[in-house]
Nucleic acid binder design. Structure first.
Lengths: 214, 214
DNA sequence: TCCATACACTTAACGCCGTTAAGTTTGGAG
DNA sequence: CTCCAAACTTAACGGCGTTAAGTGTATGGA
Protein backbone atom coordinates (compact mmCIF):
# COMPACT_ATOMS: atom_id res chain seq x y z
CA UNK A 1 0.00 0.00 0.00
CA UNK A 2 2.29 2.73 -1.25
CA UNK A 3 -0.44 5.31 -1.48
CA UNK A 4 0.07 6.78 1.93
CA UNK A 5 3.78 6.90 1.22
CA UNK A 6 3.22 8.68 -2.06
CA UNK A 7 0.98 11.19 -0.32
CA UNK A 8 3.60 11.84 2.27
CA UNK A 9 6.23 12.19 -0.38
CA UNK A 10 4.15 14.72 -2.25
CA UNK A 11 3.48 16.63 0.92
CA UNK A 12 7.17 16.71 1.77
CA UNK A 13 7.89 17.87 -1.77
CA UNK A 14 5.57 20.82 -1.43
CA UNK A 15 7.06 21.60 1.94
CA UNK A 16 10.43 21.72 0.28
CA UNK A 17 9.15 23.91 -2.49
CA UNK A 18 7.84 26.34 0.09
CA UNK A 19 11.22 26.51 1.74
CA UNK A 20 12.99 26.93 -1.57
CA UNK A 21 10.68 29.76 -2.55
CA UNK A 22 11.12 31.43 0.80
CA UNK A 23 14.89 31.17 0.50
CA UNK A 24 14.82 32.63 -3.01
CA UNK A 25 12.79 35.60 -1.85
CA UNK A 26 15.20 36.07 1.00
CA UNK A 27 18.18 36.15 -1.29
CA UNK A 28 16.67 38.04 -4.20
CA UNK A 29 14.52 40.61 -2.45
CA UNK A 30 15.78 40.68 1.10
CA UNK A 31 14.49 40.24 4.58
CA UNK A 32 11.19 42.08 4.43
CA UNK A 33 10.13 40.61 1.11
CA UNK A 34 9.59 37.21 2.62
CA UNK A 35 5.82 37.20 3.09
CA UNK A 36 3.38 34.35 3.07
CA UNK A 37 1.63 35.80 0.06
CA UNK A 38 4.79 36.14 -2.01
CA UNK A 39 5.97 32.67 -1.14
CA UNK A 40 2.59 31.33 -2.17
CA UNK A 41 2.59 33.26 -5.41
CA UNK A 42 6.02 31.90 -6.27
CA UNK A 43 4.93 28.28 -5.94
CA UNK A 44 1.54 29.05 -7.53
CA UNK A 45 -0.57 28.12 -4.53
CA UNK A 46 -2.93 30.17 -2.45
CA UNK A 47 -1.45 31.77 0.67
CA UNK A 48 -3.51 29.57 2.94
CA UNK A 49 -2.01 26.45 1.42
CA UNK A 50 1.18 27.22 3.29
CA UNK A 51 -0.66 26.67 6.54
CA UNK A 52 -1.20 23.04 5.66
CA UNK A 53 2.55 22.57 5.88
CA UNK A 54 3.64 25.08 8.47
CA UNK A 55 1.72 26.38 11.44
CA UNK A 56 2.94 29.95 11.13
CA UNK A 57 5.33 32.08 9.16
CA UNK A 58 7.70 31.85 12.08
CA UNK A 59 7.90 28.11 11.62
CA UNK A 60 8.95 28.61 8.02
CA UNK A 61 11.66 30.97 9.16
CA UNK A 62 12.79 28.52 11.79
CA UNK A 63 13.02 25.79 9.19
CA UNK A 64 15.09 28.10 7.01
CA UNK A 65 17.31 28.80 9.97
CA UNK A 66 17.82 25.13 10.51
CA UNK A 67 18.99 24.69 6.95
CA UNK A 68 21.22 27.70 7.31
CA UNK A 69 22.79 26.43 10.48
CA UNK A 70 23.67 23.26 8.67
CA UNK A 71 24.97 25.30 5.75
CA UNK A 72 27.15 27.26 8.14
CA UNK A 73 28.55 24.03 9.52
CA UNK A 74 29.23 23.01 5.93
CA UNK A 75 31.34 26.13 5.51
CA UNK A 76 33.78 24.62 7.97
CA UNK A 77 34.45 21.60 5.77
CA UNK A 78 38.13 20.86 5.43
CA UNK A 79 39.13 22.93 8.42
CA UNK A 80 39.06 19.92 10.72
CA UNK A 81 41.97 18.50 8.75
CA UNK A 82 44.37 21.30 9.68
CA UNK A 83 46.89 19.97 12.19
CA UNK A 84 47.46 23.10 14.29
CA UNK A 85 44.38 23.92 16.38
CA UNK A 86 45.26 27.61 16.34
CA UNK A 87 45.24 27.51 12.57
CA UNK A 88 41.91 25.73 12.77
CA UNK A 89 40.59 28.45 15.02
CA UNK A 90 41.72 31.18 12.63
CA UNK A 91 40.32 29.33 9.64
CA UNK A 92 37.02 28.79 11.41
CA UNK A 93 36.85 32.47 12.21
CA UNK A 94 37.40 33.34 8.57
CA UNK A 95 34.83 30.84 7.41
CA UNK A 96 32.26 32.21 9.85
CA UNK A 97 32.90 35.77 8.80
CA UNK A 98 32.75 34.85 5.15
CA UNK A 99 29.41 33.14 5.67
CA UNK A 100 28.01 36.19 7.38
CA UNK A 101 29.04 38.55 4.62
CA UNK A 102 27.90 36.26 1.85
CA UNK A 103 24.43 35.74 3.32
CA UNK A 104 23.67 38.81 5.40
CA UNK A 105 19.91 38.24 5.35
CA UNK A 106 20.32 34.72 6.61
CA UNK A 107 22.83 35.84 9.18
CA UNK A 108 20.49 38.51 10.40
CA UNK A 109 17.72 35.97 10.81
CA UNK A 110 19.99 33.43 12.49
CA UNK A 111 21.89 35.62 14.90
CA UNK A 112 20.52 39.15 15.05
CA UNK A 113 16.81 38.57 15.52
CA UNK A 114 15.30 37.35 18.77
CA UNK A 115 13.17 34.25 18.32
CA UNK A 116 10.68 32.72 20.71
CA UNK A 117 12.39 29.93 22.65
CA UNK A 118 12.66 26.82 20.53
CA UNK A 119 10.54 23.82 21.43
CA UNK A 120 12.79 21.30 23.16
CA UNK A 121 14.90 21.11 20.02
CA UNK A 122 13.48 18.77 17.44
CA UNK A 123 15.51 20.94 15.13
CA UNK A 124 16.77 18.28 12.73
CA UNK A 125 20.34 19.18 13.56
CA UNK A 126 22.35 16.60 15.46
CA UNK A 127 23.46 18.61 18.44
CA UNK A 128 27.07 17.96 19.26
CA UNK A 129 27.97 16.58 15.84
CA UNK A 130 30.68 18.93 14.55
CA UNK A 131 29.61 18.28 10.96
CA UNK A 132 26.20 19.81 11.63
CA UNK A 133 26.61 21.81 14.82
CA UNK A 134 28.98 24.74 14.34
CA UNK A 135 29.07 25.52 18.01
CA UNK A 136 30.20 21.99 18.76
CA UNK A 137 32.81 22.35 16.03
CA UNK A 138 34.17 25.47 17.67
CA UNK A 139 34.24 23.79 21.06
CA UNK A 140 36.16 20.89 19.55
CA UNK A 141 38.87 23.22 18.30
CA UNK A 142 39.09 25.02 21.61
CA UNK A 143 39.26 21.71 23.50
CA UNK A 144 42.31 20.82 21.46
CA UNK A 145 43.86 24.21 22.17
CA UNK A 146 43.34 23.77 25.88
CA UNK A 147 44.54 20.17 25.94
CA UNK A 148 47.70 21.06 24.06
CA UNK A 149 48.39 23.79 26.58
CA UNK A 150 48.34 26.54 23.98
CA UNK A 151 46.25 28.90 26.09
CA UNK A 152 47.16 30.56 29.33
CA UNK A 153 46.85 27.90 32.03
CA UNK A 154 43.93 29.50 33.86
CA UNK A 155 41.78 29.26 30.75
CA UNK A 156 40.15 25.86 31.06
CA UNK A 157 36.45 26.49 30.53
CA UNK A 158 35.95 25.51 26.90
CA UNK A 159 32.29 26.50 26.98
CA UNK A 160 33.21 29.99 28.10
CA UNK A 161 36.03 30.22 25.58
CA UNK A 162 33.68 29.22 22.80
CA UNK A 163 31.06 31.75 23.81
CA UNK A 164 33.60 34.54 23.97
CA UNK A 165 35.37 33.77 20.71
CA UNK A 166 32.00 33.49 19.03
CA UNK A 167 30.85 36.78 20.55
CA UNK A 168 33.92 38.59 19.28
CA UNK A 169 33.61 37.35 15.71
CA UNK A 170 29.87 37.87 15.77
CA UNK A 171 30.50 41.43 16.88
CA UNK A 172 32.44 42.33 13.75
CA UNK A 173 30.03 40.57 11.43
CA UNK A 174 26.86 41.96 12.92
CA UNK A 175 28.16 45.51 13.09
CA UNK A 176 29.11 45.22 9.46
CA UNK A 177 25.62 44.05 8.55
CA UNK A 178 23.76 46.62 10.62
CA UNK A 179 26.07 49.62 10.41
CA UNK A 180 28.30 49.43 7.36
CA UNK A 181 26.39 52.20 5.60
CA UNK A 182 26.51 54.48 8.62
CA UNK A 183 28.85 57.34 7.82
CA UNK A 184 29.22 58.40 11.42
CA UNK A 185 32.19 56.08 11.65
CA UNK A 186 35.20 56.17 9.38
CA UNK A 187 35.19 52.43 8.87
CA UNK A 188 38.38 50.52 8.31
CA UNK A 189 37.99 47.77 5.74
CA UNK A 190 35.99 44.89 7.07
CA UNK A 191 38.72 42.29 6.54
CA UNK A 192 41.17 44.43 8.49
CA UNK A 193 38.78 44.71 11.40
CA UNK A 194 37.99 41.03 11.43
CA UNK A 195 41.61 39.89 11.25
CA UNK A 196 42.75 42.41 13.78
CA UNK A 197 40.12 41.44 16.34
CA UNK A 198 40.82 37.75 15.94
CA UNK A 199 44.57 38.32 16.24
CA UNK A 200 44.25 40.54 19.28
CA UNK A 201 41.90 38.17 21.03
CA UNK A 202 44.15 35.18 20.31
CA UNK A 203 47.10 37.12 21.62
CA UNK A 204 45.17 37.61 24.78
CA UNK A 205 44.37 33.92 25.11
CA UNK A 206 47.64 32.31 24.10
CA UNK A 207 50.20 31.20 26.66
CA UNK A 208 53.25 32.38 24.73
CA UNK A 209 54.20 36.02 25.24
CA UNK A 210 55.44 36.67 21.72
CA UNK A 211 52.67 38.17 19.66
CA UNK A 212 51.76 36.13 16.62
CA UNK A 213 51.24 37.97 13.41
CA UNK A 214 49.34 36.10 10.71
CA UNK B 1 4.53 89.16 17.52
CA UNK B 2 4.92 86.00 19.57
CA UNK B 3 2.17 84.14 17.84
CA UNK B 4 4.39 82.33 15.39
CA UNK B 5 6.70 81.48 18.26
CA UNK B 6 3.84 80.08 20.31
CA UNK B 7 2.72 78.00 17.34
CA UNK B 8 6.19 76.61 16.91
CA UNK B 9 6.44 75.89 20.59
CA UNK B 10 3.17 73.99 20.53
CA UNK B 11 4.26 72.07 17.50
CA UNK B 12 7.54 71.10 19.15
CA UNK B 13 5.61 70.08 22.25
CA UNK B 14 3.45 67.69 20.30
CA UNK B 15 6.53 66.36 18.55
CA UNK B 16 7.97 65.63 21.94
CA UNK B 17 4.80 63.99 23.12
CA UNK B 18 4.94 61.71 20.10
CA UNK B 19 8.47 60.69 20.94
CA UNK B 20 7.62 60.14 24.57
CA UNK B 21 4.67 57.95 23.65
CA UNK B 22 6.77 55.99 21.19
CA UNK B 23 9.44 55.45 23.80
CA UNK B 24 6.89 54.30 26.38
CA UNK B 25 5.47 51.77 23.96
CA UNK B 26 8.98 50.59 23.23
CA UNK B 27 9.74 50.03 26.87
CA UNK B 28 6.38 48.72 28.01
CA UNK B 29 5.33 46.56 25.10
CA UNK B 30 8.50 45.96 23.14
CA UNK B 31 9.83 46.44 19.68
CA UNK B 32 6.89 45.34 17.55
CA UNK B 33 4.30 47.21 19.59
CA UNK B 34 5.55 50.56 18.36
CA UNK B 35 3.03 51.35 15.64
CA UNK B 36 1.77 54.64 14.37
CA UNK B 37 -1.72 53.83 15.48
CA UNK B 38 -0.72 52.97 19.03
CA UNK B 39 1.44 56.03 19.36
CA UNK B 40 -1.46 58.15 18.15
CA UNK B 41 -3.91 56.50 20.51
CA UNK B 42 -1.59 57.15 23.43
CA UNK B 43 -1.43 60.88 22.78
CA UNK B 44 -5.13 60.99 21.80
CA UNK B 45 -4.62 62.14 18.25
CA UNK B 46 -5.53 60.47 15.00
CA UNK B 47 -2.80 58.37 13.39
CA UNK B 48 -2.44 60.78 10.51
CA UNK B 49 -1.61 63.63 12.87
CA UNK B 50 1.80 62.04 13.36
CA UNK B 51 2.58 62.73 9.73
CA UNK B 52 2.39 66.45 10.37
CA UNK B 53 5.42 66.09 12.60
CA UNK B 54 7.35 63.21 11.07
CA UNK B 55 7.48 62.14 7.46
CA UNK B 56 7.46 58.43 8.18
CA UNK B 57 7.56 55.99 11.03
CA UNK B 58 11.22 55.50 10.29
CA UNK B 59 11.87 59.13 11.06
CA UNK B 60 10.29 58.68 14.47
CA UNK B 61 12.53 55.73 15.10
CA UNK B 62 15.56 57.69 13.97
CA UNK B 63 14.65 60.49 16.35
CA UNK B 64 14.34 57.97 19.15
CA UNK B 65 17.72 56.59 18.20
CA UNK B 66 19.22 60.04 18.40
CA UNK B 67 17.94 60.48 21.91
CA UNK B 68 19.21 57.04 22.81
CA UNK B 69 22.65 57.72 21.45
CA UNK B 70 22.83 60.77 23.65
CA UNK B 71 21.56 58.71 26.56
CA UNK B 72 24.27 56.18 25.92
CA UNK B 73 26.87 58.91 25.98
CA UNK B 74 25.35 60.03 29.27
CA UNK B 75 26.01 56.59 30.68
CA UNK B 76 29.70 57.35 30.41
CA UNK B 77 29.46 60.30 32.76
CA UNK B 78 32.17 60.29 35.38
CA UNK B 79 34.36 57.82 33.54
CA UNK B 80 36.40 60.59 31.95
CA UNK B 81 37.63 61.51 35.41
CA UNK B 82 39.43 58.21 35.97
CA UNK B 83 43.16 58.78 35.69
CA UNK B 84 44.25 55.45 34.19
CA UNK B 85 43.08 55.14 30.56
CA UNK B 86 42.94 51.37 30.87
CA UNK B 87 40.58 51.75 33.79
CA UNK B 88 38.59 54.17 31.69
CA UNK B 89 38.43 51.62 28.92
CA UNK B 90 37.19 48.93 31.25
CA UNK B 91 34.66 51.23 32.84
CA UNK B 92 33.41 52.34 29.45
CA UNK B 93 33.00 48.73 28.45
CA UNK B 94 30.97 48.04 31.55
CA UNK B 95 28.82 51.10 31.02
CA UNK B 96 28.14 50.13 27.43
CA UNK B 97 27.20 46.61 28.37
CA UNK B 98 24.99 47.80 31.15
CA UNK B 99 23.18 50.14 28.81
CA UNK B 100 22.56 47.33 26.36
CA UNK B 101 21.10 45.02 28.97
CA UNK B 102 19.00 47.71 30.57
CA UNK B 103 17.43 48.84 27.31
CA UNK B 104 17.51 45.85 24.99
CA UNK B 105 14.79 47.21 22.72
CA UNK B 106 16.62 50.47 22.26
CA UNK B 107 19.87 48.65 21.77
CA UNK B 108 18.31 46.46 19.14
CA UNK B 109 17.05 49.48 17.28
CA UNK B 110 20.33 51.34 17.60
CA UNK B 111 22.80 48.63 16.75
CA UNK B 112 21.12 45.47 15.51
CA UNK B 113 18.76 46.79 12.87
CA UNK B 114 19.93 48.03 9.50
CA UNK B 115 18.71 51.56 8.73
CA UNK B 116 18.69 53.38 5.43
CA UNK B 117 21.77 55.59 5.22
CA UNK B 118 21.32 58.75 7.28
CA UNK B 119 20.95 62.05 5.49
CA UNK B 120 24.25 63.91 5.79
CA UNK B 121 23.87 63.92 9.56
CA UNK B 122 21.64 66.67 10.82
CA UNK B 123 21.25 64.28 13.69
CA UNK B 124 21.26 66.77 16.55
CA UNK B 125 24.29 65.08 18.07
CA UNK B 126 27.52 67.01 18.05
CA UNK B 127 29.80 64.60 16.28
CA UNK B 128 33.17 64.40 17.95
CA UNK B 129 31.98 65.81 21.27
CA UNK B 130 32.71 63.05 23.79
CA UNK B 131 29.79 64.20 25.95
CA UNK B 132 27.33 63.37 23.19
CA UNK B 133 29.21 61.08 20.81
CA UNK B 134 30.07 57.77 22.46
CA UNK B 135 32.27 56.72 19.60
CA UNK B 136 34.35 59.86 20.00
CA UNK B 137 34.51 59.17 23.73
CA UNK B 138 35.91 55.70 23.07
CA UNK B 139 38.42 57.07 20.60
CA UNK B 140 39.54 59.60 23.20
CA UNK B 141 40.29 56.85 25.68
CA UNK B 142 42.17 54.80 23.11
CA UNK B 143 44.16 57.84 22.00
CA UNK B 144 45.36 58.21 25.57
CA UNK B 145 46.25 54.53 25.72
CA UNK B 146 48.29 54.78 22.54
CA UNK B 147 49.99 58.03 23.52
CA UNK B 148 50.97 56.64 26.90
CA UNK B 149 52.51 53.65 25.17
CA UNK B 150 50.26 51.18 26.94
CA UNK B 151 49.50 49.15 23.82
CA UNK B 152 51.87 47.08 21.73
CA UNK B 153 53.88 49.55 19.66
CA UNK B 154 52.52 48.47 16.28
CA UNK B 155 48.98 49.41 17.39
CA UNK B 156 48.69 53.04 16.38
CA UNK B 157 45.45 53.26 14.43
CA UNK B 158 43.01 54.58 17.01
CA UNK B 159 40.10 54.40 14.59
CA UNK B 160 40.76 50.71 14.02
CA UNK B 161 41.24 50.09 17.72
CA UNK B 162 37.94 51.76 18.50
CA UNK B 163 36.08 49.77 15.88
CA UNK B 164 37.49 46.50 17.12
CA UNK B 165 36.96 47.13 20.81
CA UNK B 166 33.43 48.24 20.04
CA UNK B 167 32.82 45.17 17.89
CA UNK B 168 33.93 42.85 20.66
CA UNK B 169 31.73 44.39 23.32
CA UNK B 170 28.85 44.68 20.91
CA UNK B 171 29.27 40.99 20.18
CA UNK B 172 28.57 39.94 23.75
CA UNK B 173 25.69 42.34 24.17
CA UNK B 174 23.94 41.54 20.93
CA UNK B 175 24.28 37.80 21.33
CA UNK B 176 22.79 38.17 24.76
CA UNK B 177 19.84 40.11 23.38
CA UNK B 178 19.19 37.83 20.41
CA UNK B 179 20.15 34.45 21.78
CA UNK B 180 19.96 34.38 25.56
CA UNK B 181 16.83 32.23 25.53
CA UNK B 182 18.33 29.76 23.07
CA UNK B 183 18.97 26.53 24.96
CA UNK B 184 21.28 25.15 22.31
CA UNK B 185 24.16 26.77 24.16
CA UNK B 186 24.98 26.20 27.81
CA UNK B 187 25.44 29.89 28.48
CA UNK B 188 27.89 31.09 31.06
CA UNK B 189 26.58 34.07 33.03
CA UNK B 190 26.52 37.21 30.96
CA UNK B 191 28.79 39.20 33.26
CA UNK B 192 31.40 36.44 33.12
CA UNK B 193 31.37 36.45 29.35
CA UNK B 194 31.57 40.21 29.11
CA UNK B 195 34.40 40.56 31.60
CA UNK B 196 36.31 37.67 30.16
CA UNK B 197 36.16 38.98 26.61
CA UNK B 198 37.21 42.46 27.63
CA UNK B 199 40.09 41.08 29.70
CA UNK B 200 41.29 38.76 26.97
CA UNK B 201 41.13 41.44 24.32
CA UNK B 202 42.97 43.92 26.52
CA UNK B 203 45.63 41.31 27.21
CA UNK B 204 46.06 41.00 23.50
CA UNK B 205 46.43 44.73 23.02
CA UNK B 206 48.59 45.68 25.98
CA UNK B 207 52.33 46.03 25.68
CA UNK B 208 53.18 44.37 28.98
CA UNK B 209 53.43 40.59 28.90
CA UNK B 210 52.04 39.97 32.36
CA UNK B 211 48.35 39.24 32.11
CA UNK B 212 46.22 41.64 34.05
CA UNK B 213 43.43 40.19 36.06
CA UNK B 214 40.71 42.59 37.13
C1' DT C 1 -19.52 -0.29 -9.07
C1' DC C 2 -20.97 3.32 -6.23
C1' DC C 3 -20.77 6.10 -2.31
C1' DA C 4 -19.12 8.30 1.98
C1' DT C 5 -15.31 10.32 3.51
C1' DA C 6 -10.85 12.28 4.37
C1' DC C 7 -7.88 15.46 2.78
C1' DA C 8 -5.59 19.08 -0.15
C1' DC C 9 -6.71 23.15 -1.46
C1' DT C 10 -9.25 27.69 -2.43
C1' DT C 11 -12.15 31.86 -1.64
C1' DA C 12 -13.45 35.26 1.40
C1' DA C 13 -12.79 37.57 5.23
C1' DC C 14 -10.86 39.71 9.82
C1' DG C 15 -8.07 42.84 12.08
C1' DC C 16 -3.86 44.66 11.92
C1' DC C 17 -0.17 47.71 9.54
C1' DG C 18 2.06 52.28 7.14
C1' DT C 19 0.56 55.76 4.41
C1' DT C 20 -2.30 59.07 1.41
C1' DA C 21 -6.34 61.87 -0.29
C1' DA C 22 -9.86 64.58 0.76
C1' DG C 23 -12.46 67.03 3.85
C1' DT C 24 -13.27 69.97 8.25
C1' DT C 25 -12.30 73.04 11.83
C1' DT C 26 -10.14 77.16 13.68
C1' DG C 27 -7.66 81.15 14.77
C1' DG C 28 -5.33 85.06 13.24
C1' DA C 29 -4.48 88.71 9.23
C1' DG C 30 -6.31 92.04 6.20
C1' DC D 1 -16.46 90.24 8.53
C1' DT D 2 -14.04 87.61 5.35
C1' DC D 3 -10.51 84.85 3.80
C1' DC D 4 -6.70 81.87 4.18
C1' DA D 5 -3.37 78.83 5.97
C1' DA D 6 -2.37 75.58 9.07
C1' DA D 7 -3.71 71.73 12.19
C1' DC D 8 -6.22 68.04 12.43
C1' DT D 9 -9.73 64.25 11.20
C1' DT D 10 -12.29 60.75 8.50
C1' DA D 11 -12.07 57.45 5.06
C1' DA D 12 -9.66 54.78 2.31
C1' DC D 13 -5.80 51.91 -0.22
C1' DG D 14 -2.96 48.14 -0.55
C1' DG D 15 -0.43 44.98 2.05
C1' DC D 16 0.35 41.89 5.99
C1' DG D 17 -0.44 37.16 8.96
C1' DT D 18 -4.00 34.31 9.88
C1' DT D 19 -8.70 31.91 10.19
C1' DA D 20 -13.40 30.16 8.77
C1' DA D 21 -15.94 28.11 5.59
C1' DG D 22 -16.53 25.91 1.28
C1' DT D 23 -15.02 22.90 -2.90
C1' DG D 24 -13.36 19.26 -5.42
C1' DT D 25 -11.24 14.76 -5.85
C1' DA D 26 -8.99 10.49 -5.01
C1' DT D 27 -9.61 6.52 -2.20
C1' DG D 28 -11.07 2.73 0.79
C1' DG D 29 -15.11 0.08 1.94
C1' DA D 30 -19.99 -1.70 0.75
Amino acid sequence: MGIKERREREKAELRDRILVAARELFVEEGFDAVTMRKIAERIEYSPTALYLHFETKDEILRALCDEDFRALAGHFAGIAALPDPIERLRAAGHAYVQFGLQFPNHYRLMFMTPHPPQEAEESAIAKGDPDQDSYAFLKGILTDCVEQGLFRPELQDVELLAQVVWAAVHGVVSIEIAKSNDDWVDWRPFAVRADFLLDALLNGLLAGTSPRKA
